Simulated scan of single mutants.
Amino acid sequence: MADSPLLDLDAPEIKDLVYTKTNIGGWFFDAYLKMEHTSRLTITDHPVQTGAAVSDHAFLQPRELSMDVAMSNVQESFVPGQFSGGYSRSVQAFNVLRELQQLRVPIQVHTRLGLYPNMLIEVLSAPDDYTTLDGLHCTVTFREIIVAQVTTVKISARPLVTDHSNRGVVEPADLNQSALKQLGGFAKRYLGGK
């Protein structure tokens, strides 16, 4: 494969285009026929107490994006050199998408409606019939990878639990005494009564 699917997004020929034109990881396809942006909020079924923070009872699922892309064998590449070196531009474009999927490295997808920084290609679907002999029509389905920040916290090297503890003097208790008799014993001990 002549082109590497990992592009230098800071290269002069694509630096200005990456944030202004729809692209998949810096790869610019001839046409984007349809896009479906899906953002889903899962709401728990547990009752919510009045005054509770509702945000604790709902969470966002990873975003999904489906794009129908098209490539032609007769058109020049938007960025010189992209999708070259293969049998045809359309076959090379499909190979790039397949390799991006196989690498399993999160990529950035830019669309008119927003920027998706951590996307993986979940599904590639490309019909191949008489209508696509000189081109490619492919549906690419992306799913967002949720990234969490990890914080390192220093803890003491001293053990939090000891292997023994001072329990004081243990005396057996007579469980068959009535409450009145127990109260009388209490009065004798602490109040000096008889």
Rank of each mutant, 00 (worst) to 15 (best):
L175D: 14
H37N: 11
T152V: 11
S156D: 15
T141C: 07
I24N: 05
A53C: 10
T141Q: 05
V48M: 14
T38C: 08
S125W: 01
G192D: 01
G193N: 04
V153Q: 13
P106L: 04
E13W: 01
S90C: 12
E99K: 05
N23V: 04
Q75I: 00
P62A: 02
R143E: 12
A93W: 01
T162L: 11
D10A: 08
Y19H: 08
T162M: 10
S39E: 12
V169D: 03
D10S: 12
L160F: 13
V91R: 07
T131H: 13
P47F: 00
G184S: 10
E36K: 15
S178H: 09
Q108S: 10
V96E: 02
E122W: 02
L183H: 15
P159W: 10
Q149M: 07
T132I: 04
S72L: 06
M67Y: 05
R143P: 02
M1N: 12
C138H: 04
E36D: 15
D30F: 11
D163P: 10
G168V: 01
S125D: 04
F186L: 14
S39G: 08
R40Y: 06
V96L: 02
M119N: 12
Q102T: 04
T139R: 06
P12N: 11
E36Y: 05
V169P: 01
T152M: 08
D8T: 06
S90M: 10
I14F: 04
Q182R: 12
A179I: 07
D163S: 15
T22W: 05
A52T: 07
D3M: 14
A52G: 01
L33A: 14
V79D: 06
L60C: 05
V69Y: 00
V153E: 14
L113Q: 07
A157F: 09
R40N: 08
F186V: 10
Y130W: 08
K194L: 13
V74N: 01
V54M: 05
P62V: 00
G26R: 08
I107G: 00
S165F: 08
V150E: 11
L97H: 03
N118V: 04
N166S: 12
G193S: 00
I145A: 13
